[in-house]
Nucleic acid binder design. Structure first.
Length: 690
DNA sequence: ATAGCCAATGTG
DNA sequence: ACATTGGCTATG
């Protein structure tokens, strides 16, 4: 002990004396008789303050200051020269616990205010948020911000509806088409927590199947949660639930309602008056009471990854909840992610899929064509379509609507040679060249270097091709190629929910495909598939397949003439999986490859991005678990043009994910204490690692 | 984070 | 001798 500790010891002695007297506020405020200490999570978005602080509960707040209530507290003030508290700023917080005593050796500040006695942070929600924060190297306060919606006094003042008694267990319905489908429902209805990876059959049945799984869970007296990637799929499950169970058994937690209405619905769930919730990403935290089932639909959809720190993923939160709350899990989609395949391979979940014969019966016929096979006839050329695609569309248009999927403009930022498809690269740094405006010269997206006289390094051609032609231009061109056929577009700005069962060309960007009423589309053309597949991303194949299956699942079965034409290299794995309609097989092969490479989900990764020195500092500071690899750092393009950042990837065995996250968090905290340090962004499970 | 404390450095 | 600045610490 150094001499400086003398004063510290003395101070500790004084504090000890104070504490032994009783936990009490600094100035003689009368305290609550029972449990006069409130343990509070102070909502201050600082990683190093990820801990609880004790406050004294004034007698006047004794009843309202319940665990889970929102409070305001003074925080960060100083004890002045005369031992008087110069109060810090007011901060929001949540009471996590009421206690008789405090571990803290000092006078406790009193709670400034209890905003409302509503117990929004239930013990289960607190445990979940803590687990998510730990999983993603974030702070509890950050996660709570995602999990607990803002307060609206009006909604709190109203009573929530009275809970309904459990419904009867549903019939298997469409689940009869899946081998273990009826058994899965029966298990839910019996109060078990079965975990399955569900490869949904093509066609319009899946919302009803989700509704039946929810109904089976409700029938056991437990609650259910369904998270879907977008508002349209939420609306479809909402409709299916209303049809199966009537209204009032579930709430929709999605952006369609205003904040107050949203909070009203959230409260109905939190108060236990409604036992089922469906919604988009933020619904993953919905505090459903007695959770018996959590469903994630289309877990490969990127909107399941939260853009807010610490970037939790819906699937991972769902898995945490299933484990923590003993609930069943249903990870379903038309496609299968590598992560889902991994759940099956490790035995955590069982596959829930139909027999091959059933799949073949319901899937459309899929034909492949390379786009070098451009149409010979004038009409096909005008539409920039391969002749097979043109003929398919021409033929199908006599029978019903035809869906044309075109990648979103800007989705693939690069250009390619118009003759041989070689990507157009910057001569200086190898980055992708972009066309600025209509007549502006090409410029590198990474270094900004302008390129005045480009020609292809492979074949010498001067012809450029934008890898993606936007939906609008495609619509114009197709409209000319098929005169007198109505053309409708669905995309970012205006998304159509459905189109009538009548001949029409329906141009859509991925994810915006309208459902065709009646039998479904007569055909679908999946254009520019090669552009989707050529993306330099580990997930390019999986992502292309998911998008194709989403569109192709809206097409009639082959037996009813349904045909899909995909313009892509026929030997590509994802293309073959589409032809065979075998997403689970594709995911299995991808998983084999990840195993070879030790890439996620066979390992757990984190990325560390920042100025080169900052990244090096953090890597020097972090105490990685044994066996951890450091890949890189390598230069990456920063958000600002010309900014030079570096990124390192850290890799550990899957079981060491928690150790990696906590090591990174500790290193980040240590670095944040040095205020001069450049910031480093840490991301667990980075999306783009390839 | 941010205020406050302390020590080291700079200035009149 | 006093002001300024940078590093470090605690926050109930």
């Amino acid at each position: 002990m150094s001499s400086a500790d003398g004063a510290g010891e003395q101070l500790a002695f004084i504090r000890e004396t104070v504490r032994k007297a009783k936990p009490r506020a600094a100035r003689g405020v009368r305290l609550a008789e029972q449990a006069p200490v409130a343990r509070v999570l102070v909502d201050k978005g600082v990683l190093s303050l990820d801990q609880f602080f004790d406050y004294a509960v004034p007698a006047a707040m004794a009843d309202d200051a319940r665990p889970g209530a929102r409070v305001r507290v003074r925080f960060g003030g100083r004890v002045g020269a005369h031992g008087r508290r110069e109060g810090g700023a007011l901060h929001d917080g949540f009471i996590v616990e009421r206690r008789d005593t405090s571990d803290y050796n000092g006078p406790l500040a009193p709670l400034a205010r209890v905003l409302s006695p509503e117990q929004v942070l239930t013990p289960a929600l607190l445990r979940l948020c803590r687990a998510v924060a730990d999983r993603y190297a974030g702070s509890l306060a950050d996660v709570l911000q995602l999990a607990v919606p803002p307060r609206h006094a009006g909604a709190e003042a109203e009573p929530s509806p009275r809970p309904l008694p459990p419904p009867a267990a549903p019939e298997p319905g469409g689940w009869a088409r899946y081998g273990h489908g009826p058994a899965y429902l029966a298990s839910l209805a019996a109060g078990h927590g079965p975990r399955a990876v569900w490869t949904a059959l093509p066609g319009p049945g899946w919302p009803e199947e989700i509704a039946r799984a929810v109904a089976a869970t409700l029938s056991s007296g437990r609650g259910a949660l369904v998270v879907l990637p977008d508002g349209r799929s939420v609306a479809r499950v909402d409709a299916a639930l209303n049809a199966l169970l009537g209204e009032g058994r579930h709430v929709v937690l999605a952006a369609d309602a205003g904040p107050q209405e949203r909070y009203r619905r959230w409260l109905a769930v939190s108060r236990g008056s409604v036992h089922a919730a469906i919604g988009t990403r933020a619904a993953m935290f919905a505090p459903v009471r007695g959770l018996g089932l959590v469903v994630v639909w289309s877990d490969g959809d990127s909107s399941h990854s939260d853009p807010n720190a610490p970037h939790p993923h819906v699937r991972e939160v769902a898995l945490l909840r299933a484990a923590e709350e003993g609930a069943g899990a249903l990870i379903g989609g038309l496609s299968t992610t590598v992560e889902a395949a991994q759940l099956v391979r490790t035995g955590w979940a069982r596959p829930l899929a139909a027999e091959r014969a059933t799949v073949r019966e319901l899937a459309p016929r899929v034909r492949t064509v390379t786009d070098l096979d451009q149409g010979r006839d004038a009409a096909a050329q005008a539409a920039r379509l391969p002749s097979v695609a043109w003929e398919t569309a021409h033929d199908a248009l006599t029978r019903g609507p035809v869906l044309i999927q075109v990648p979103r403009r800007g989705y693939v930022p690069s250009l390619a040679c118009g003759r041989c498809r070689t990507p157009v690269r910057c001569r200086r740094c190898g980055g992708p060249l972009q066309a600025g405006g209509a007549d502006e010269p090409l410029a590198c997206a990474w270094c900004g270097e302008a390129e005045g006289d480009w020609h292809c390094v492979e074949c010498g051609s001067f012809r450029l091709r934008a890898q993606v032609v936007g939906a609008r231009r495609t619509a114009e061109e197709l409209g000319r190629a098929f005169p007198r056929v109505p053309v409708r577009t669905s995309g970012r700005e205006s998304v159509l929910a459905s189109v009538p069962d009548a001949p029409a060309l329906v141009i859509s960007t991925p994810g915006a495909e309208p459902v065709a009423e009646g039998a479904g589309y007569a055909a679908a053309l999946l254009l520019d598939g090669w552009a989707l597949l050529n993306r330099p991303d580990l997930r390019a194949g999986e992502e292309a397949l998911r998008r194709w299956l989403t569109a192709a699942a809206l097409v009639r079965p082959a037996g009813e003439g349904g045909t899909v034409v995909v313009v892509a290299e026929p030997t590509a794995r994802a293309v073959q999986a589409l032809v065979r309609w075998d997403p689970a097989g594709h995911a299995g092969l991808e998983l084999d490859e990840r195993e070879q490479l030790r890439f996620p989900p066979v390992s757990r990764m984190a990325s560390v991005t920042g100025a080169p020195q900052a990244v090096a500092d953090l890597l020097g500071l972090v105490r990685l678990p044994d066996g951890a690899d450091v890949l890189g750092p390598v230069p990456v393009a920063g958000p600002a043009r010309g900014e030079e950042l570096e990124r390192a990837l850290l890799r550990v065995a899957p079981g060491q994910g928690a150790a990696l996250a906590s090591a990174l968090k500790a290193a980040q905290i240590a670095r944040l204490a040095l205020r001069t340090a450049d910031p480093v962004r840490i991301r667990i499970d980075p999306l783009d690692i390839g």
